Simulated scan of single mutants.
Amino acid sequence: MLDLDGVVYIGGSAVPRAPEALAAAREAGLRLAFITNNAARPPAKVAENIRNLGIEATAEDVVTSAQAAARVLADRLAPGAKVVNLGAAGLREPLDAAGLIPVAVDEDAEAIVTGYNPELLWKDILRAAVRIKDGLFWVASNTDMTFPAAYGIAPGHGVLVDTLRRFSGVEPVVAGKPSRPLLEETIRRTEAERPLMVGDRLDTDIEGGHNTGIDTLLVLTGVTGLEDLVAAEPHRRPTYVSADLGGLLEAHPAPETDGTAARVGGWTAEVRDGELRVTGEGTADDWWRAAATSSWAHLDATGTVVTIGAQAVPPRPDADGGTVVSAS
């Protein structure tokens, strides 16, 4: 189950090596699903954007938080139930598919669903807030506070959710990551027996995997860096870590540990006087495994996050993303 931004693409370009890695994964027999907290775009549009990057994808391969939200509502309401839709077209389609009837904010309804909608009017937000406070069942597609727009980092749907929550005192049922519905809907659709959540964010992708009880793979092509990883609490620690999606095709050896020391693939990571040090040589992926394991052992033992020493700088991978120069 692949997050998109920072994993498959960045902006309008594919992440380096992602098309090749995903093609090889399909060839090896893996089923790929592309999942997104974005509730504004229909799956067909998401799949089209992925194909334009040279990556095989159909609408059936895409699962959105809007579809997960519709599932939450369909499980609670009878067919034909009316639902106030404060989202864009990406939300209306799955409501229709679930046999629910989208209606305007002033109409009789059994529930309300909110999603990112740049054309939403303030008067409709006001009416929705009052109806939620008065007890109308509320599902939010996601709580992402920001999203990357062409003009910079812009407020996401989470800003609206926070506004409605603070006014009404009501917590919505959230469909998107890190809550469970989006991942559970993906598992249901794909009939996955050994699902793996692949993402670049600890607080949505990896935490979402933990909440769902499945393994996770963190790729380091997006927002997570060394400072984030060494400070991760247990519920945000990935099962596996890799520089990029090439990690789908490789073995992931577990580091040998001794206190806060971790050794794997030619690297030794240890914490001395609260400072992380990594020495040796090997692959970039093994460097990250050693550094993370050592740092987490120190955090669990002392309750303090390591400082990053001069010898703990992520190595530069070669052109194939593999062997790296010595960092001793």
Rank of each mutant, 00 (worst) to 15 (best):
I153D: 07
I153E: 13
I153G: 05
I153Q: 13
A154C: 12
P155Y: 14
G156M: 12
H157W: 04
H157Q: 15
G158V: 09
G158S: 12
G158H: 10
V159F: 08
V159K: 09
L160A: 13
L160M: 14
V161M: 07
D162H: 15
D162P: 01
L164E: 07
L164N: 08
L164I: 11
F167R: 09
G169T: 08
E171M: 13
E171H: 12
E171R: 14
E171V: 12
P172K: 12
P172V: 12
V173R: 10
V173H: 09
A175P: 03
G176L: 01
G176H: 01
K177L: 07
S179R: 14
R180F: 03
P181R: 06
P181Y: 07
L182Q: 04
L182R: 05
L182C: 08
L183S: 06
L183P: 06
T186W: 09
T186E: 10
I187W: 08
R188A: 15
R189E: 10
R189V: 03
T190W: 05
E191L: 13
E191C: 11
E191Y: 08
R194A: 13
R194P: 01
P195S: 10
L196D: 06
M197L: 14
M197E: 03
M197H: 02
G199V: 10
G199H: 10
D200E: 08
R201N: 13
R201Q: 14
L202E: 00
L202P: 01
D203M: 05
D203H: 14
D205V: 07
E207T: 10
E207P: 00
E207M: 15
G208R: 00
G209P: 01
H210E: 02
N211I: 10
T212M: 05
T212R: 01
G213W: 05
I214A: 03
T216P: 02
L217W: 00
L218A: 04
T221N: 11
T221E: 08
V223S: 11
T224N: 05
T224L: 07
G225C: 07
G225R: 14
L226H: 02
E227K: 11
L229R: 00
V230N: 05
E233M: 09
E233C: 01
R237Q: 15
R237Y: 05
R237H: 08
P238L: 05
P238M: 06
P238F: 04
P238G: 06
T239K: 07
Y240Q: 02
Y240P: 02
V241I: 15
V241A: 05
S242Q: 04
A243I: 12
D244I: 07
L245G: 05
G246W: 03
G247P: 04
L249K: 06
E250G: 00
H252E: 12
H252V: 13
P253V: 09
A254K: 03
A254Y: 00
P255S: 09
E256F: 00
D258K: 06
D258P: 01
D258H: 11
D258E: 14
G259W: 07
